[in-house]
Amino acid sequence: MALTLTSSAFVNGAVLPQAQVYSGMGETGGNLSPPLTWKDAPEGTRSFVVTAYDPDAPTGSGWWHWVVINIPPTVTSLPEGAGSGKGGLPESAVQLRTDFGTPGYGGAAPPPGRVHRYTFTVTALDVPKLDLPADATPAMVGFMLNHHRLASAQITALYGHAR
């Protein structure tokens, strides 16, 4: 069995619900992190990391919408809004700075034009925690993930609007 990730808010390849769209910058969404559930973590999993990333952002390097580290291995889901201050994050979990400049979930907010992909990933790690400063960049998290990854699973939602 392989690690899998699902959401009760959308299926892989579907349109991201308005609840998960940014509130601001011309968007009128709920800015709530989606509910996520994962299962079949590999043996030896000592913690999880959850991220949300838009590879289509017109930056040359994509856009990080959410980074949560140090989720205990006994946790297999996050409720809607957990990354938006609505509760449900494990006590040991740490939300790091996103490309919005602050920690916490930042919903979809693409410029008008083409549809963007929003990839949610859960990564099982072989360490109990990533010892990173609160201002660690998503690139630093990615470096640590690649060094400690046991397995990862993704789901992707789509979102865009006309010019």
Rank of each mutant, 00 (worst) to 15 (best):
R114S: 15
A157P: 00
L36C: 13
W66L: 14
G106W: 11
A136R: 10
M144Q: 10
V68R: 05
L150V: 15
L145F: 10
L78M: 05
A108K: 04
L32T: 14
G160K: 11
P72S: 11
G104R: 01
S47I: 15
S33Y: 02
G30V: 11
P34V: 15
G62P: 00
M144S: 11
A157M: 07
L150N: 06
G142H: 04
G142E: 06
G142C: 14
P133H: 09
T123G: 00
G107W: 05
A41C: 00
T37I: 14
P72V: 14
L78V: 15
P17W: 01
A57K: 08
D56T: 12
S152V: 08
P90D: 08
F48N: 04
A41Y: 08
N146T: 15
N146Q: 15
L130R: 05
G107A: 06
A52Y: 07
T102D: 09
G44M: 04
R97D: 00
S77Y: 09
I155E: 06
P133I: 13
F10L: 07
Y22H: 11
S152G: 07
P112W: 13
F100M: 07
T4R: 12
I155C: 01
D40M: 05
P112F: 04
P79A: 10
Y53A: 05
W63N: 13
L32V: 11
A109G: 08
T51M: 10
V15C: 01
G113C: 15
A2I: 07
Q95I: 10
Y159W: 03
V122A: 11
P35R: 12
A41N: 05
G30R: 01
I155Y: 04
